[in-house]
Amino acid sequence: MYKQIAAAASILLIMGLSLFKLKDTTVTTVVDNKNTIEVGSDRAILTLENGNQVALGQGKSYQTGNVRSNGEELVYNSQSGKVNTKEKLLFNYLTIPKGGQFFVQLSDGTEVWLNSDSKLKYPTKFIEGETREIELLYGEAYLKVSPSSEHNGAAFNVRTKAQEIGVLGTEFNIKAYTDDSQIETTLVEGKIVVETEGAKKVLSPNQQSRIGADLNLIEVVDVDASEAISWINGLFTFNEESLGEMMKVLSRWYDVEVVFESAEHQDFIFTGVLEKTKSFVDILELIAATSDGEIKFEIEGKTIFIK
């Protein structure tokens, strides 16, 4: 099972959803119960420093050099996790497909949870005494960073395409999907510095930075950090979320394509918490029931039509 953590704040589990309509739209509810779409699972592709790729997943054990996997997590050996300044850093990539998730423990002890449709670049070992740096190429990751006090004061940086995050030892979430309009970084514990080419902000726990197209602007808002990281604990949390954004999240986990036949249907707003272990059809039926028969889903293969 995907490694879970306890949230810093308690999560209120709402067994269902509530709906608020932004537009006066009427549709009918139909779900094809014969269709079977698989629930997401622990799986990833590990790309080694020599370019070789290894499929990781449940029931697949793997070990080479200083890394091993039991099919549910990837762990780099901390005993051989440092190199001197004369050695060259070697990088691995961990790619999580749609319908997947995975946990990796880096050679310095830093723990990283990767959500569906994500890709991480990181060194197989870190240079002792120098800043430890990894890159989230796209997707979503939750990090529990090994403190600098355990690494001769070496700081830890995380890069994305639009920002750099500096930490000393902390827990935070980065959501940086290519099809999202902004990058969201949420701090759970500790302190981080979020920096772009033209702006810089320091975050405290339960604060979230938001970076859009304007890299000279970093918006910081107060949030409930437990909602942002609920995916780690097997939950979908939607807090006044549009159906359009909601279906983005669901499509990544269930590896489906969603087509809105009318753009205004994306504007229905939902609030609630759902279990990621539920079948996709069950979730669609719950959304449909919550809408009092105003939303219609049709499933053809792995494509969902919202009429």
Rank of each mutant, 00 (worst) to 15 (best):
L235I: 12
N50V: 07
D267N: 09
K82S: 04
V167A: 14
E72P: 00
K161D: 14
G51S: 05
L284A: 03
S242F: 09
E245P: 04
E164G: 05
F270W: 09
S80M: 00
F280K: 04
R210W: 01
V75S: 01
K23C: 07
N206K: 08
G100K: 11
S181P: 02
K21Y: 14
E49H: 06
A288K: 08
A225N: 06
F260Q: 10
L46V: 07
I183K: 04
N173Q: 10
M247C: 08
E294T: 11
E171G: 05
L217Q: 15
T26L: 10
K278R: 15
N206I: 09
G65W: 07
I127L: 01
P123C: 04
L114E: 01
S69G: 12
I269R: 14
D214C: 03
L74Y: 07
S146R: 03
K307G: 12
G212I: 11
L137F: 04
V145M: 02
L243W: 08
T196H: 10
M15G: 15
Q208N: 10
D32L: 02
Y62R: 09
A228D: 12
E219R: 11
I283E: 07
S204P: 04
D255P: 02
S204K: 15
S262I: 10
Y76D: 02
G234F: 03
M1C: 06
G244W: 11
Q63G: 02
D282V: 01
F102N: 08
V259S: 09
G244A: 11
V27K: 03
L286G: 02
A8E: 14
S41Q: 14
K125Y: 03
S148P: 00
R68P: 00
K3N: 15
Y2T: 13
T25P: 02
S10Y: 07
K161M: 05
A9P: 00
F260P: 06
L215C: 03
E227W: 02
K161A: 15
